[in-house]
Design a protein around this nucleic acid. Structure first.
Lengths: 215, 215
DNA sequence: TCTTTATAACTAACCGGTTAGTTAGTTGCA
DNA sequence: TGCAACTAACTAACCGGTTAGTTATAAAGA
């Protein structure tokens, strides 16, 4: 019956030991599944299949489904907020230029479904897992908001920016980008994010000069 | 044992026939549950209990859980978009005032968790049910967006508004409100929506005059 | 170099709990 | 009496997480 080897190759091993590469692969697969189906509807089995191992193996690296989401947030957006804060801090001398650079960077990120997926997930699960919302508020959004407000205030102090309410200015800066991201990735509408230069140019025309005709 | 009635009142009926009032009550309960736990995690049993009937009875009025969400969107936000469009159309003669009024109305809506809940749900389930996203894009957002753009363009044509890109102006108008709504209801942060007058005033200072110091 | 031993990495199969949706029967009301 | 409105009890299926067992690989001795 069973041909006795020799001619028969060693049958390709069913799996290989690759402990180092696993966590990242699993997270990547999880992000893809979560993005496509949402957190609750995504199945661990499918994530495992996409990552090329068994469902049980996932539990060797992550204790629960929820832990996958936490790790994703940590990995994908936490550094991002930090980077934004750094950029904002570095640009205090020339706030308008810093805002422009930030805007370009953010627009590029917003165009990437993988990046937008994370806040989308947060919106989806915040009702059930308030601690996720809390983490996101404190570690990501509040941090970025604070940095931007400082940037605005520095601009006001230096006379480069009109005396405006800092919180309102930050909303006016971030809000439109958020809106376009939702339109693009949630509603799948024709997006302006494909042409970031034009988008930024138009945004800054309104942001800097306002709607009212200048005297 | 069991006291033989006579003295015992007719036991309060376990339920009453109220077919007309049911659908609305069910939808209200569903919205509350969906808001608190998200679409997937909300249980039909709990919705039924909150609406004061049995789970099976829900299926006399709605064929599926998904139908509840569809009916909710139809009932809660579709008229809202229509109203926005009407207001925008009516205000073409004085676009800036119309924008102010719209802003106030929208801020009031954004402060209401029940209203924000619906778009939140859409964001959560859009991956699994693209037709929901499609409906929402076409029937709600595109409609409102279009009306606002017309309003802006009318303002530009009449000299009341600077020559700006209409889409950018709409983003600048809506984005900040959306951002604040998410901050408030998803991240549970301290909100500016509690003081709508101040919020609108600050938003319009930036929106109309921009960030750049005026000559 | 060839075993032997140890263990890290992995899988197949299962379990317990959950829940959307159904059915068969009961109750209120005209 | 008849029927629409309603419920209790049920089914079927799903899925997160566990467990018992298997395989790849490395290290230690001979």
């Amino acid at each position: 019956m069973a041909p006795k080897s020799a001619s028969a190759r060693v049958p390709a091993p069913r799996w290989r030991r690759r402990a180092e590469a696993r966590p990242e692969e699993i997270l990547e697969a999880a992000l893809a599944e979560f993005t496509a189906k949402g957190f609750e509807a995504a199945r661990m089995e499918d994530i495992a299949k996409a990552a090329g191992l068994s469902k049980a193996a996932i539990y060797l690296y992550f204790p629960s489904k929820m832990a996958l989401l936490e790790a994703l947030i940590e990995a994908k957006v936490s550094p991002l907020a930090h980077q934004a804060a750094t950029l904002a801090a570095a640009g205090q001398a020339d706030p308008l230029t810093a805002l422009r650079m930030l805007s370009t960077a953010i627009a590029a990120l917003m165009a990437d479904p993988k990046v937008v997926a994370v806040p989308r997930l947060v919106i989806g699960v915040c009702g059930r897992f308030p601690e996720i919302a809390e983490y996101y508020r404190v570690q990501v959004v509040a941090k970025a908001r604070g940095a931007l407000e400082q940037l605005i205030e520095a601009g006001v102090a230096g006379g480069k920016i009109r005396k405006v309410d800092a919180a309102a200015a930050v909303r006016a800066f971030i809000g439109p980008l958020l809106f376009e991201a939702m339109w693009t990735h949630v509603l799948k509408g024709e997006t302006a994010l494909n042409d970031p230069r034009k988008l930024i140019e138009q945004q800054f025309d309104v942001l800097l000069n306002g709607l009212e005709p200048r005297a």
